[in-house]
Design a protein around this nucleic acid. Structure first.
Length: 699
RNA sequence: GGGCAUAUAGCUCAGCUGGCUAGAGCGCUACAUUGACAUUGUAGAGGUCACAGGUUCAAGUCCUGUUAUGCCCACCA
């Protein structure tokens, strides 16, 4: 007979939900986890499956230790990403968001959200996650809006919020600033033009290379590398900007590469990200020459009103006439395009809202430096600190419709999604209200997440919590590995390299999917390669458990004597106690991969292959007790099958007591003695003698 | 360009503070199976532990360098 997970998983989950076991008991020292809220943009992928398995294992372990255990679930409104999805759907009907207006668009997005939240929650349940669903939150729900407003206002009161010019990626067609992730890159064959800029009071020139001659209208400097011998004498001199006849300085900066073009860069702080940075450091003027409509502004004098393309051609023509165009080369680079409409992006200056970071960051650095918050694995501590020590002010405004409104009169922009996510661990417990949950469960214990959002999210939760609650948001940060496919490539839907966790669950069961992920996990590893095979192996393991259980119940139904009598008894008891000890320590140290591998080896190769086999010759009344302990140890990893086999509806496994080991029962002498006999039997087996006969003979 | 990580059987990975005659699972080969499990059992083949130096009585394990791969950050005039 084979184990059929699909038949029992739903029933078991209902049993847990009905019993309200996911809600925390009363008591001291709670164990609290807040889920990294999945974006409502799509279905869960293997990374989610891994992270939520990890959290569920830890939550179940602590629940079995009889601690008040709470896992708060929820989802993220994911501003840009969600808005894009809905806009894409609109586009299929030939509409844009402007056609239906802001109010209707937001309404539509809310409807879209409802559907997707249900899908996500259903997936988490299928995976076996023991979240307290009565506390489910959404980053855009009513209470959350209050948290966001309160946070913003406090920053504002303290003078941390300011509005300032910032270079943004601008789509002239959509007339909005867009973020880096909304940009796609396309290789473009273009030219690199070499333009001569005349030196002031001299007949000499300095030549710059550029792919964007039209931006020269807004040039405010020429920049060379400070180590470049060719230009050393020119630093500090002035040149006359051709066509415009403005005087600009020659300066130096480390970011300029000697080997690119002529080694001299024309600096347009208004229309290039790096130029802007260099310009800022040198306090240079910013001259806007391209407007939000993609046309040359008044600052472009005789070229004002022309499109970018027209301006480029005219400028090149005029430079040619003046004999200032030295040469042109073929050049290929990647062009930034708007993800939605394929229009080339124009970096330009616009006013944005910022949060000053200098004061906020200090306690957040100290908390990690002094190990009040610990990173697992350790190396991420350094990564976090490096970033925090070199942090820029936080740009919190976005030109979107889907998100929290900036609580300032007349302001139609919305807030960066991460502004609300930064409040997650306390906002989900009811902050700013003084709720019972805040009293009982804050600060939380664990935050488990992916490495790519340490900056975007983890760091921001830490300084937010220290600012608003004067305490750290959690004590442990677990950074899990990235799940890659078997070729070591990123799992991606569009590339067809992804594996859908739901398909795995349907095929092999949730337990096998979970255990498979754990079996290949290790704490220190940055990535893991997952193949279906891993789930298959774990499915076989589940089946093994199922059949061990059947064997014990159907064939070994002997009256119980709890005392170990034989050598085999003492041996398995010794091994079991070691397993309890190691599993407990491994979980405490977040070594979940090691824990799962060790249980697997014990169950299959010690318990089933030897002890159960021996039971066929000798009555092994300890079987039932040992198997129950195994089920307990395995429960966090494989919650469904273990609960099913434990088969106690009144006192289910989920709330049973985590086993404790007894050091006295760990007996290395007995283990060695038994191993000697094992070796003898293995030796004899080569002569094709039946195992059962050998057991009779030697044991 | 900066940082981090990984490199051990055909494949996926264990091997923690140096003692290994280098392990597991999958795959492969042979045999077995009537008290659970063919999603089973036993055995076997398969490895100069990426490469080059060094430290040590002893190195897969520590150090230095090289190469390859992956991830993150910055940038692509």
């Amino acid at each position: 007979m084979a184990y059929e997970p699909e038949k029992i998983e739903k029933e078991i989950y209902n049993l847990w939900e009905k019993g309200k076991f996911f809600q925390p008991k009363k008591g001291k020292k709670p164990y609290v986890v807040t889920i990294p809220p999945p974006n409502i943009t799509g279905a869960l992928h293997m990374g989610h499956a891994l992270n939520n398995t990890i959290q569920d294992i830890l939550v179940r372990y602590h629940r079995m230790n009889q601690e008040p255990t709470l896992w708060v679930p929820g989802t993220d409104h994911a501003g840009i990403a969600t808005q894009n999805k809905v806009e894409k759907e609109l586009k299929e009907q030939g509409k844009t968001r402007h056609d239906i207006g802001r109010e209707k668009f937001v309404e539509l997005t809310h409807k879209w959200k409802e559907k997707h939240i249900d899908i996500i929650i259903d997936q988490l349940k299928k995976l076996g996650c023991s979240c307290d669903w009565s506390r489910t939150r959404f980053t855009l729900d009513k209470g959350y809006a209050k948290a966001v407003e309160t946070a913003f206002n406090q920053y504002h009161k303290k003078g941390y919020i300011y509005q300032g010019p910032r270079i943004v990626n601008w789509c002239p067609r959509c007339s909005t600033a867009i973020s880096d992730i909304e940009i796609k890159y396309k290789p473009e064959k273009t030219k690199l033009w070499y333009i001569k800029y005349p030196l002031k009071d001299s007949k000499k020139f300095i030549t710059v290379a550029t792919t964007r001659p039209e931006t020269m209208l807004g040039d405010t400097a020429i920049v060379v590398n400070p180590k470049d011998e060719r230009y050393k004498d020119l630093i500090g001199k002035k040149v006359i900007l051709p066509l415009i006849n403005r005087e600009i300085p020659i300066i130096s900066h480390r970011l300029v590469e000697k080997d690119f073009g002529t080694g001299a860069l024309k600096l347009t702080p208004a229309h290039s990200v790096i130029d802007n940075k260099i310009g800022k450091e040198n306090k240079l003027e910013i001259i806007n020459v391209i407007g939000e409509d993609g046309k040359i502004t008044e600052n472009g004098k005789q070229y004002a009103g022309l499109t970018i393309k027209e301006a480029r051609n005219k400028i090149l023509e005029d430079l040619q006439k003046l004999n200032l165009l030295e040469k042109q080369e073929d050049y290929e680079h990647s062009l930034s395009l708007c993800d939605r409409c394929n229009t080339p992006i124009e970096p330009l200056i616009s006013k944005q809202w910022f949060v000053k970071m200098d004061k906020l960051v200090k306690p957040a650095i100290q908390a990690v430096k002094k190990d009040k918050i610990k990173f697992y694995p350790k190396r991420y501590k350094k990564i976090y600190l490096d970033w925090m020590e070199n942090i820029d002010d936080w740009c919190i405004s976005r030109q979107l419709w889907w998100g929290h409104k900036i609580p300032i009169k007349g302001e139609t922009d919305v807030l960066d999604t991460w502004f609300s996510s930064a409040l997650w661990p306390f906002a989900v417990l009811g902050w700013p209200e003084k709720t019972q949950d805040m009293k009982d469960f804050y600060p939380t214990t664990l935050l488990s997440t992916a490495q790519d959002i340490i900056y975007l999210w983890v760091a921001r939760m830490i300084f937010s919590s220290l600012e608003f609650l004067k305490t750290i948001p959690f004590t442990d940060v677990y950074i899990h590995s990235t799940v890659l496919n078997i070729e070591g490539k990123r799992m991606s839907k569009s590339l067809g390299t992804g594996i859908d966790p739901l398909e795995l669950i349907e095929k092999y069961g949730a337990d096998a999917t979970r255990f498979g992920l754990m079996y290949i996990t290790s704490l220190e590893q940055q990535q893991i390669r997952f193949s279906e095979n891993t789930a298959k192996t774990s499915r076989n393991f589940a089946n093994k458990l199922f059949n061990i259980n059947r064997f014990i119940k159907e064939f070994l139904d002997k009256p119980e004597t709890k005392k170990p009598k034989t050598l085999a008894d003492k041996w398995i008891i010794s091994k079991l106690n070691t397993l309890i000890k190691n599993t407990t320590n491994n979980i405490k140290e977040y070594k979940l991969g090691e824990a799962s591998r060790e249980i697997y080896d014990f169950v299959w190769h010690d318990y089933a292959d030897w002890y159960v086999e021996i039971s066929k010759q000798q009555d092994k009344s300890l079987n039932k007790e040992i198997f129950e302990t195994i089920l307990k140890l395995l429960h966090p990893f494989m919650p469904f099958i273990t609960e099913h086999l434990y088969n106690d509806k009144k006192n289910p496994l989920i709330i049973s007591n985590w086993p404790k080991h007894n050091e006295k029962l760990i007996d290395k002498k007995t283990e060695k003695e038994f191993e000697k006999i094992q070796n003898k039997i293995i030796e004899k087996r080569k002569e094709n003698i039946k195992l059962q006969d050998l057991i009779k003979e030697f044991l």
